[in-house]
Every structure is written in C-alpha cells, then in structure tokens.
Design a protein around this nucleic acid. Structure first.
Lengths: 170, 170
DNA sequence: TATTATTTTTGACATTAATCAAAAATCTAT
DNA sequence: ATAGATTTTTGATTAATGTCAAAAATAATA
C-alpha cells in the first residue's frame, strides 16, 4: 500500500499567503501539512472569519466541499510557507477501494477530527471572552505563538478589540 | 454481512426520560434510533447544557467516550420513548475488521457527521439570538416541533429567557 | 534608517443578552 | 376536573461584549 500511496501523492511547496482553496470553487484535493500552517476562513458581512487552523501533521481541506463536491464556502490560506502533500479525491477513492487498511486509517482520522471539533464546540458555548482565551492558552499554546491576534479573535468567536482587552488584563 | 450485523445487534425499547449514558461512565455502545428522540447534555455550573439531539435514523453515543473509552463527560437521555438498536464497541470492531464494506459505511457516516457539526459550528458563531432561532426554524423545524424550549435554548447557546423573548417578537 | 503599511491597543458609547425574581401558562397524575 | 409540578413568559436590572474611531506599536520595504 505504501508504494501505491506514494504514487498517488504530490509534494507541494508554497509561499506564505497563497491559497489552497477559494470559496465558490469545488475542492478536489486533500492536503497533509508536513511543515507550516494554514487557516480556513469565510466571509461574513464583509469580514473574514477564521474558523480553524492547520499545523504540521494535520489533514486539511474544505471538508464540506471535498466530501460533497459542491462549491466551497470557505478559503484556505497559508499563514506560513508550507510543505504539503496533496492527493486528489479520485486517487484517494481508488486507494480506499483497494485497501481496507486505507479505509480504516481515514475512518480513524475522521473519528479524531470529529471528537476534536465536538470538544471545541462544547468548550466555546457559554464561556466568557477571558475563559475562551485562557482555555486556548492552556490547550493550544502553539496557536497563540504562531497566529496573528486578528485571526485568533474570530477563531474564538469574539472581536479583536475584546481579545486585546482580555490579554491586557491578564 | 447483513446476517453478521443482525447477530451482533440488540433491539432496545426504553421509556421517556431513561438514560443511555451518564457522565463518568465509559460508553461501550453505539445506538441507532429507529423511533423516538434523545438529547445529549452536560453539566456546567449546575446547569444542564443540551448540546445535541438525536432523532430517527441517527447514530448516537458519547462519541468521545465510545472512541477513546474514557469516562463520558455527557449524559444521553430519552426525550421520548424510543426503539433503539444497540451494538457494543467490541462487536462493531469485529465487524469493521471482517468487512471492508462496514468500515466504509462507518467512514462515510463520520464524514456526514463531521460536516454537519462543522456547519453547525459556523452557523453559530457571530450570530444574534434571533438569527440563531430563525436559522433553526429553517434548517431543523423538526427540532422546534419535538423538543422543549429549555433544551433548545442551550442547544443554541442562549438563555431560555432570551429564546422566549425572541420567539415572542417574531 | 526612514517611510509606509499592517497589526494591536485604547477610549467612548451602544447594544445585546444574561441574571434574578415572579407571574402565567401548560402539562401530569390523581 | 383539580391540585401540583413543570415549563414558559414577562419585567427590571446588570454585565459583557460589539462597534466605531483614532492612537500606538510593530513589521515590512525601499
């Protein structure tokens, strides 16, 4: 399987600020981040809302678009220069058809991603701005170290000004 | 595979208000709802926060606990009398090992659940209470029809009083 | 290093929603 | 049908956060 995987995968090196996906286009690739970081964001009333980050060893794509093959509602942009591995939807599906083991790996990846998202959801509801920030500081210090404040604010679901004030009185 | 599945699955009929899972216990079963509805909730500062609902044809469990086999942080309670099909973690794993096809079905189920959750997350951030409610009215009218207001309020991440006011001025 | 652009902070104010308490409405069971 | 329990609504008040605008700090570029 290893060889078959390598045959189907492409290494991609891209500079900061490049886009992997832009809204309105159908997303045909899944990416694995070897090095660097990306953000997913969408537009809401003229503002960019960053709703997730991807770092080393994450699989990233617009999952909604990749799975349904409908146009993406989000954009994925590199926050740092990246080394990525890309696989097309078709190639991935061939792999899943051929190897039970591949299917299992992806199933387990989804499990992990599902409970990670669920956890994030639960920890976001009914929290004050400072709880959200302190929580992030504890659970994901790497985000605070590597990501501009403006992105973090919308990731937490609060305004940039509020985040700034929360930090100042910490 | 069909027969093997049926061998491993148990029909469970339970009355309203019964619990499928309570927090602190490890969740060893996955349930499929044939008839009825359930809610998942956790305790936050003495309050019950209902964070999801399950209806006919949904798979439900405390996914975090079921997947990791750590104690659950949530409770699952029947909102109506239910007809459920239950499968143990071990039985499911045997099935996944034996049949690529089973693995695939579960993988696809996770895909669906993942993007459903993601969508809910995105539609929750940066919305006013009335946007949240109108959104729910549009996307999931069955929830409003079958679920008490108090549960819906915490599902939307707002107080019951606010939800009541939103409804009155609609 | 000087200049410009970008990001972050601060201030004043408006708005939304939470909280607490009590009344009204609805549901349940005798 | 009636009494009791539960759920929902309403009112008054408070607290938290958003918004707009401008200043300060930081980073990027010539």
């Amino acid at each position: 399987m290893q060889q078959r995987l390598l045959d189907r995968v492409t290494k991609v090196v891209l500079p900061k600020n490049e886009f992997l996906i832009t809204e309105g286009r159908v997303c045909r690739h899944l990416y694995f981040i070897e090095q660097g970081s990306v953000r997913g964001f969408y537009n809401l009333e003229g503002k960019e809302i960053t709703h997730w980050f991807g770092f080393e060893n994450d699989f990233v794509t617009s999952f909604h678009s990749f799975i349904t093959q409908e146009p993406a509602v989000e954009n994925i942009q590199l926050m740092e220069g990246c080394v990525l591995w890309s696989i097309s939807k078709e190639a991935l599906e061939e792999l899943l058809n051929e190897y039970h083991e591949a299917e299992r790996l992806i199933r387990i990846a989804y499990e992990k991603y599902y409970i990670r998202l669920e956890e994030r959801f639960v920890n976001a509801q009914f929290r004050t701005a400072s709880e959200l920030y302190e929580n992030l500081l504890q659970r994901s210090p790497h985000i605070i170290e590597r990501v501009p404040l403006g992105y973090i604010a919308s990731y937490l679901g609060i305004s940039q000004e509020t985040l700034s004030r929360v930090r100042s009185r910490l």
